[in-house]
């Protein structure tokens, strides 16, 4: 491989890693809810769409950027509380499949509501982040991707600190560990669930803005759930760290496969290669790279 070939490899890898951050962002929304309530929230994609549409519609209506951001965040928190109160609490103690089906239905309701409220056309979303690439030692890096990665990094650091050092965070981890014991200790499961749904709403807003700025705010945005699934399989459904590492891995693998394997099979690998990886992981390591293994002495 010559020098330019090597630079190109680096460039593709970095591009892949940075887009992987975006996958991780969507996956974290899933992990938060799955960890505490065992619910695989299929509506996470619809929440991403709803958040992006809310924000874009506010901006288009002339609301200043920061205010629109605050209002959208408030709406997502309210949506999270509402979902917990009206859908999950009445279904507490039901089987995981029942809960999964409920969130599947919920995703259609949210998408439909978004369509009724905000309409169906594609919106352009400009976050004011430059899209021009810059060059470091001969390697081109997208400014937007780098900023997006930084924002995601700050969000993850914030969430981690919250769960590590606050009392609410400790309650969250206790509920995630043993729901019945948490109930017996006097922790309020409903409050914990409401908090994580609200947190998932905020994560959805951030993901929606970044993805929306990249792809335009449109209904296919809710399909990024399908990008998050292989990430979850690889990282483990209950690990925030796993979601990040797996997001990066899937992002890089996808791009590298597209560039280096694509030509041999006629291209178009990027769309499905992540699922090949997920399938292999399921065969070899079903709980994912970072999925919870039993902490127990025998």
């Amino acid at each position: 491989m010559d020098w330019f070939g090597f630079l190109f490899l680096i460039e593709v890898t970095i591009g892949g890693l940075l887009s992987g951050v975006m996958y991780a962002l969507v996956a974290i929304g899933f992990v938060l809810i799955y960890k505490t309530s065992g619910v695989l929230n299929f509506a996470q994609g619809a929440m991403v769409l709803f958040a992006a549409l809310t924000f874009v519609s506010l901006v288009e209506a002339g609301v200043p950027f920061v205010l629109a951001l605050l209002i959208s965040a408030a709406i997502m928190v309210a949506l999270g509380f509402a979902i917990e109160r009206t859908v999950l609490r009445p279904l507490a103690n039901r089987s995981p499949m029942t809960l999964f089906m409920a969130t599947l239905g919920l995703s259609y309701i949210i998408e439909g509501a978004a369509q009724i409220i905000w309409g169906t056309e594609v919106h352009r979303l400009d976050l004011g982040i430059s899209n021009a690439p810059f060059q470091v030692a001969g390697v081109f890096i997208s400014t937007f991707d780098l900023v997006a990665a930084a924002i995601a990094g700050v969000l993850v650091a914030g969430l981690t600190a919250f769960f590590r050092w606050t009392r609410t965070g400790l309650a969250f981890r206790a509920v995630a560990d043993d729901q019945f014991a948490a109930l017996a200790v006097g922790l309020r499961l409903d409050r914990t669930w409401a908090t994580v749904w609200a947190a998932a709403g905020i994560v959805a807003l951030v993901a929606g803005l970044l993805w929306g700025a990249r792809l335009g705010v449109q209904f296919s945005l809710s399909l990024i759930v399908l990008k998050a699934l292989p990430v979850l399989v690889l990282g483990g459904f209950d690990s925030v760290l796993g979601a990040i590492v797996a997001g990066l891995a899937i992002g890089a693998t996808e791009k590298l496969a597209e560039v280096y394997l694509g030509p041999f099979v006629g291209g178009g690998i990027e769309g499905w290669f992540a699922y090949v990886v997920a399938l292999l992981v399921l065969l070899i390591r079903p709980s994912g790279l970072f999925g919870q293994k039993l902490v127990e002495r025998f």
Partner: peptide, 17 residues
């Protein structure tokens, strides 16, 4: 029914929370 993935001190703290 201790919280297995939490430290002993964190386990105790949940009771107070």
């Amino acid at each position: 029914r201790c919280f297995k993935t939490l430290s002993i001190e964190e386990n105790l703290t949940t009771g107070a929370i």
